[in-house]
Structures are given as C-alpha cells and as structure tokens.
Design a protein around this nucleic acid. Structure first.
Lengths: 372, 372
DNA sequence: GCAATGAATGCTCAGCTTGAGCATAACCAA
DNA sequence: TTGGTTATGCTCAAGCTGAGCATTCATTGC
C-alpha cells in the first residue's frame, strides 16, 4: 500500500526481529558508541570504482582483466577500506585505485552502497560479509593502463544498452522473449513479496508495450518509444533475477533460464551491478550538471561534444538544436582556433567555461532526442 | 585541473600509499575474497534513517530525544548493520527502525554513505570506525511515537532552510556575516587543498552576491535570488567547517568562531549531516518523481498538495499554475468527494493515481516558483 | 436574510522554448 | 571543377510557462 514501484529499494515486510533488538537501542549503556558489544560481526567494506572515459566516441570503462584461476571475468578496480590508513572513503578509494592501476583520479562521485548477502560471492565463497561502496570516476582520455588493466566498451557488458543504431538486436531476438517467458512463469510462493508484477517490471524497464504477452492489446511486438536510458540498473537487476546474467548462476540462484546463454560479459563480485549504476548515473547527470566535460579533452568541436553525449545517452540528437542549446547555455566559449580535417568544413574549437562551476545552478547539457 | 567544484567529494591529492598497497591488488592470492588478510581492521556499519512526514503543512522528522548523560542532543533512529541477521541493508534498516520506534517503514531510499574519521564521534570517543549509511524514509502521517521518540520540525535543526516567509532572519543577521568573516580569515596552510575559495563556496551555497566582502561590486547585502533549495547538505557542511554547527566543536575542530553560539539544534553523531542529505534529496526528487504522495493522506485537496510541496521546497507557488500542472500531468484524479470547512468554497478531493507508477517516465510534481 | 470574505476554480494572453527543416559556407577528394 | 561532407546560420510553428482577471460557492458577521 505504501509501496513504491520505482527506486532501488523495495518494500519488504515480515522481517524477523531477533535478539539484537535490545542491542539496537542506542542509549542503553553509558557508552557513546552505538553498539560496542553488538554482534555486528565480520563486515568488510569494499571500495569499487567504475572509471569511465570516452575514446573515439566509444564509451569505455577501465577493467582489471580476469587472471586468477577462479576469475575468468573482468573486475573493476577495487580494494578494501582501511580506516586506519585513510581518513575518508574518498581518500581510500583514490589510494586503492592508484595502487592498482596507477591512475590518479579526478572527478569522483559516490554511487551506492550494496550489501546484499550473496551478491558479492565467488564460487565456494565463505568469508566476511562484504558491503561494497560503488564510485563513479570520470577521465578525459584513455591512456593505456598497465598490465592487467584495460579499457573496454561499456556495451561489452551491457549490449542491450547500445542504441546508437537503434534498439540492439539482442533485445528483440533474445532478451525480451526470455524476459517475457520469465514473467509468465509461476512465481515462487516462498520468495519475497513482489508488490509489482514481473510483466509490469519488464514493460517499465524495457519499454515494451505488452510484448508477446497474451494480454497485450496493441500487438506491437518490439520495443516502443518509451525506453528510459537511465534505467540501466533496473534493467540489469531484472535480467539478473530472470537468470539472463551469468552472475545469477554464479551466485547460486536457481533460474528457469539456467541452461541458456547469458547476455553480455559478466564481471566478478557485484561489479556489473556497480557499473550499471554508474552508467545510469552519468546518463542522468549530464542533463543537469556539466560533467560531460570531464570526459572531453580541453578543446573540442561542438560535434565532438555531441558525439560524446550520444555515446553516453544513445539516441542521436538534432545537430542544429544541440549547438543552439550548448551555445546559448553559456557552457562553452570558442577558443578562436579551427580544426581542419574533420572531413568537411573546418570546425571551430571550443573550451568549457570552468567558471560556470562557480555560477549558481551550473546546468548540464540540455539534450532532447532528435532524429538525424 | 580536473577538479570539480560541485559534488560532495572533493579533489584530494598527495595521499600517501603505504604498505597496504600490495594487499590491495585483488588477484594476488588464490582466494576469491578481495582481501582476507587485509588490515581492514574494525569497521562497523551504522544504518541511520531520516524519517520524514508533513503534519499541518509543517515538515517533520522523527527523532530520538537525547536522554543519556552524554547526549543532550537528538538522534535519528539508527542501529548497527548485522549481516548475520539481515540479508540486505534495507532489511536491516527496517528492522532496526521497527525495534527502536515501532514504526514499519514504507518508502525507503538510500542516501549516502559517510565514512569520515571523526564525524561520527562523541566526546571522549574511542572505538571502532563507524561508516554510516543514511536512508530517507517517507510517511503519510505522524502518529505519536512512543517514549523517547518525537516528531520535530526539520527547521529546528536547519532554521536557515525555512524560507516560507522569505529568507530566514538568522541568515542575514547571523549566518552570512559569520561565514563571510570565516571566508576572509587566513586559511590553514596545512589543511587539505581547497580548489575553490571559501568566499566562492559561501556565495554558491547561500546565493549571496558578494555580501559584505570588500570586493563585492553590486552591494546587495542580503541573499539574492539564487538560493538553490537543494543545496541543503552543502550549506550545512559549510557551516560545520566554519564552526557554526555545534557538532564541529564536539568533533574537536578548531574554529575561529568557537566562542559564538551555534545555529540550529545539533544532533548526535553525523545525524544532522544525514538529515541535511535527506532534505536535499527530497527537495530534488519531488520535482521528477511522484514521491510527494508518500507524504500525503490518501485523499487530499489540490491546495493541501500545494501546501505540502511548499512545506518542503520553501517558496510559494502560483496557485492556478500549480493546479494546471498537477491536473494536466495526470498524477491525480478526483474522488468525487468535496471537502467543506476549507474556509471558503469547498474543494474537490483528489487521490494519487497509483498506476502512474507503472507508466514509463513517472514524473514528479513539476513546480516552478511563483509569487502569491 | 444580506453582504462581505475567503477559497476554489476557470480562462486568457503574451513571451519564451523546443522541434524541425531549409539554406549556405568551407574544405577534401577525384 | 564537381561532388561529397561537415559546419553553421536562420526561420517558423507548436507548445509550454508565468501571470493576471474573473467567477463560483460556502462561511461569517450584521
């Protein structure tokens, strides 16, 4: 009744409150700590960074290639948080990434803290419970990282998110049918309460208008016009639940779809979930904060700016209107230089007006989807 | 150079990378855990809920009144996260709140994870490092909570955020002058690198156009028209740093302003910081998600809806345009009932169309400030 | 009972923004 | 030189927004 369908957290009822109940009252003892004697048990905090960049209009993420015996999939740079060594989470993250990849991060933003039991697992896992804090980091260029690190396209991990040439084929041919089959399957009555039906969730996440469901009225079979490019995490979570993500099988989830091929490259731990969060976040944020310039070189043409935005958001933008918005928005200023060798008329170079960060609202690149 | 002024995390350089460097590489051993033998040391995770409601057009938060000897200030409901008892953070939070207050939460949303050393302190503190995860919860009504729990107005803790009758007096009379004095004071050269000047931060957070600074050109002394109601956390953090928040003195921060009276009621631990995050979040979110209805009774008049929005956002809205937006937005539907005793013509009652949550974009209450 | 009051609600209108298309400019390659 | 390609300028209609005027309808004071 008070449940809300959107958002990451759902509505869960009936949690058993056990012996720790008393310990949870913070004022019981004279101690000023919330719970010195609590059974908080072994908790480890993992800091994980989704480091994003755009190279040649391709959105990239820095990954640590799977090397160990158990690790055939990639990971994001990460490390445990050690409060003895680092005063803040932010500092700990930067130090961990620097140690692991040699990169000094610039723009960093916390994304979300994941603590689900089982989602951080590896096969045969036992050990302390890991709560992982995901971060988004942006870089202007992708210099080659050393050793086991590598830049890979986002869309290797989320092929269904790539809509630069229209909806990805894998969506219609593979994902949507399998999700619809999952939505029609009987729900485990012992599972958590799902206030919103599976079919509804599929429709909301993927913009299908009923799909091949028998109750579908307008028999449009393919993805409609209601794809929300920011719902990256919601879509991934749905695929995880439905067993289309390899991580679901690794985590020991039974799935009706267990025998079929997973979609997209998997990652270790909960890193694909964190990457999905990062992509969703940046897709939303460039619309209202000027973060896109963290991904661009210091000087760029308006079309390069547009291409970068499109690499992140997906659909193509109306060129003339895009430059009108950007220029009138006061985010950029011409440098006076022109860049030849664009294949046509030379383009004026622009730079980001850093001082807009000191202005009040500090807007983003207002973008509206167009056609061309 | 790559620094960004906005956002919570700043740009910190020169962090020393010590002996844990090697341990941070996750693929060293055959173990699948990130770091079984790491010096991750004692970390405890605290779950803290800012439970918000609106009663009689007054925005309220549920607090645990200070009772213990050391605790003269209020706290938010909170408890440690115990992974042995709770499968997810969300479940742990709900259980902790239920144990402490008796409330079953409905809408819950994770806010941010704070891990700064020292910010969670109480006087004479020693103990494990606490990383606290803040949550936002919304409730439709404020039934009286038992015992030590109490609903209090947000603005008891953040009087400067109350702009329902124009900018708060305490801003002009107290806060802005003291912040400007702090901005002019020499900066500790041993402190962290501040890529953006104090005066700029004051101006950006509080919308002053120079204030009483000697470099101010347009000598407008009071808060200008550029108050961003979502920057609640930024403003509080600035006041904390400047020593206007009592917590800063409790945490052992030296401050030029130490002798003066703090502004607003303090809270224990980092709870005022979490509450600031919650207020900023909901102020932003009602604009693009229909969360406002989590705070309203099932049936309401359009003016009650407007009053609730205004209680959260502050400035008054143009009545006619507000109802035009709400009605045309399709978020509500009339129930057919009219409510008399409004002091004038009876008002039609409306209810939230819950099925808009199943529609694609699920918009918020689009609001633009008006005058009346 | 009557009039003033205070809300609720309906309607209009000018100005701005947005979506989209046409037209032109400037360089490259054949 | 002729296309081809990209950059860039300009126009226009439709819709949205901010703001004000006007009307309806209970309550309250006389």
């Amino acid at each position: 009744m008070k449940t809300k369908g959107t958002g990451v957290t759902g509505h869960v009822t009936g949690t058993s409150i056990s012996l720790i109940e008393k310990a949870m009252s913070p004022h019981d003892s004279g101690s000023s700590k919330p719970n010195p004697a609590s059974p908080a048990s072994a908790v480890e905090i993992g800091l994980t960074a989704a480091i994003l960049a755009v190279r040649d209009s391709e959105p990239m993420v820095l990954v640590v290639r799977g090397a160990a015996a158990l690790a055939h999939s990639d990971a994001l740079p990460f490390g445990p948080f050690s409060p003895l060594n680092h005063r803040t989470l932010d500092i700990g993250l930067r130090a961990g990434v620097a140690a692991q990849t040699g990169l000094e991060l610039g723009y960093v933003e916390q994304l979300y803290t994941f603590g689900d039991r089982g989602r951080h697992a590896q096969p045969g896992d036992t050990g302390p419970h890991v709560v992982s804090i995901g971060y988004l980091a942006l870089r202007q260029c992708c210099e080659e990282p050393g050793e086991r690190n590598q830049w890979r396209s986002w869309y290797d991990y989320f092929p269904w998110e790539d809509r630069r040439d229209g909806p990805a084929e894998v969506l219609d041919h593979d994902i949507i049918p399998r999700l619809n089959a999952w939505a029609r399957a009987p729900v485990d009555p012992h599972g958590p309460i799902r206030p919103i039906g599976r079919a509804e969730r599929v429709r909301m996440c993927f913009g299908t208008d009923g799909g091949d469901s028998p109750t579908g009225s307008t028999s449009g079979s393919t993805c409609g016009s209601t794809w929300d490019e920011e719902k990256v995490l919601e879509r991934y979570e749905l695929m995880y639940e439905a067993g289309l993500a390899a991580e679901a099988q690794r985590d020991g989830r039974l799935s009706l779809d267990a025998g079929r091929m997973p979609v997209g490259a998997a990652m270790q731990y909960d890193h694909r979930r964190i990457l999905a969060t990062a992509i969703g976040r940046i897709r939303g944020k460039i619309k209202y904060r000027p973060v896109i310039f963290e991904l661009l070189p210091d000087e760029f043409t308006l079309y390069e700016l547009q291409r970068t935005v499109e690499a992140i958001l997906g659909p193509h933008l109306h060129k003339q209107n895009f430059r009108r918005l950007v220029e009138s928005g006061g985010l950029v200023e011409p440098t006076g230089v022109v860049k030849a060798a664009t294949g046509g008329r030379p383009a004026k170079m622009y730079r980001f007006r850093r001082d807009v960060l000191l202005e009040r609202p500090s807007p983003g690149v207002r973008v509206k989807p167009g056609r061309s």
